[in-house]
Amino acid sequence: MGDSAIMITFGNEIKYDTHKKIKAFMDSLENDPFVGLIECVPAFINLTIFYDPLVVYNLYKKRNKTESMSPYKVVSSIIKKRLQQIDSNQELIHRTVSIPVCYGGEFGPDLEYVARHNNLTTDEVIYIHSNGEYLAYMIGFAPGFPFLGGLSEKIATPRRPSPRTAIPAGSVGIAGAQTGVYPISTPGGWQLIGATPMKLFLPNDNPPSLLQAGDIVTFSPISQDEYNETVLKGEGQ
């Protein structure tokens, strides 16, 4: 992927097993980074490794006293070696994060549409959505935005034909077979079914994202009053 990043593909479809390999390899690189590693970005089927070619070059030049070398080849061979050392049978430990959601009303203008589309009542949609367990495969698109897998096909709904120009932060939505939460206000075409008072993007914290790739996410219904209370108390964190 150009002169400063390498993408490693672990599979060709969204699968837990692929996710497990990606997560295990990322953890091993982060726990024991090679010199020049900048950061790893996990996705559904691959891991992208960003590195500083100059740092790699300078170190290698010092060690091997040669000037004709490619930082890409050096990093590739490091990665190949590291890949062999990964024990992909090891079970992943997942954190579970529960996100309170106030469904419907002004927060979920598309809840009724989602219900109609799937021949359900709004209560049934809420029940199905809040009883699922969702795996955060990756964080991307916007700061703290989780790509969640595991939405019941019973409430899958296509995107809106034309996107909204601004979706408020905290909105919980459905797009096709995916569900997610908008951490910051952005344009978007998702069907909005509710909102959480919780903050998913925390720029002053480390890590700055409430959710990490590999987390299990659950949603628990709250009333409008509970929503307002949480916001007032500033307990969004």
Binding site: V41, F50, Q212
Partner: peptide
Amino acid sequence: RKGFQKHGVI
């Protein structure tokens, strides 16, 4: 802002 892309931070 390097090192935070996995959190979606551009």
